[in-house]
Design a protein around this nucleic acid. Structure first.
Lengths: 131, 131
DNA sequence: GGACGATACATGCACATGCATTGATTGTCC
DNA sequence: GGACAATCAATGCATGTGCATGTATCGTCC
């Protein structure tokens, strides 16, 4: 195995390990303490940041790692629990606006502490630099 | 949001994006060209490196990101396709030895090129350093 | 040596995801 | 204006995963 290739694989493995460690802890703690999936939290996190209340699905998907179908279902779940609201987009009726509800904002506020704590604790492994 | 906390979140998001980009491409290409899951490939990759033929499940799980149950099923799938073989561990009859078969080695050899190419192409985003 | 907690692996179940497709709406080209 | 490709979002289906549990074996303490 060439040295350069080896470094690449090393970086990938460390990325895998780091990601899984953090994601696993996040998923478990967020679920346990706040009844949220990691994807649900990340979605809320984006919606809480956005101060317009007319975020569109595709824009949301664009700035996240979630696929279109995953986002659709995640928002569906959040809506079912009253944490976000969907509304029709008037300018383009194929589109859907999503916005966070007061209840969603409250839930997010609480969960954020957990989220940040997990990051602080587990996002510490040194990722090998790109080159 | 405190600046330090912000950096943490930024790093996490970039990790998420990077991981998902690479994982998504890997999964798709490995499946399409070699009929392998990412987890299956990573498992083969470890087994191909190990030059003893008596790798134990728990050791394998230890050096990977896979959970115990995920590994059990991944190895199950690999075995079903004849790419690895399980055998009983004589010293501790609770344990199971896993080793790669010649067929598995051949498959891994081919798939490795795809794997390395995807890494080279997509594992290039600069991950923000730890501190 | 018998009992009991710990460990190794497999598996039932619930669930989140990706892919492919569908249904609805838009924009364009004639 | 009508036809048609493109786009947006939702959904059926298959699948991989985690959690909890089950089964077998090990090690220890009495």
């Amino acid at each position: 195995m060439e040295p350069e290739e080896h470094g690449l694989v090393e970086r990938w493995r460390s990325l895998l390990t780091c990601y899984n460690t953090v994601a696993c802890h996040l998923d478990r703690l967020l679920q346990e303490k706040h009844g949220l999936t990691m994807s649900e939290f990340e979605t809320l996190d984006r919606l809480a940041e956005c101060h317009r209340d007319n975020q569109r699905m595709q824009d949301l998907a664009g700035e996240m790692y979630l696929s279109q179908s995953a986002l659709s279902r995640t928002v569906g779940r959040l809506e079912k629990h009253g944490l976000v609201a969907r509304s029709l987009c008037s300018s383009d009726r194929r589109g859907v606006y999503v916005c966070i509800t007061p209840e969603g904002r409250a839930r997010h506020e609480k969960a954020r502490a957990t989220h940040r704590a997990v990051l602080a604790e587990h996002l510490v492994e040194d990722l090998l630099p790109t080159r």
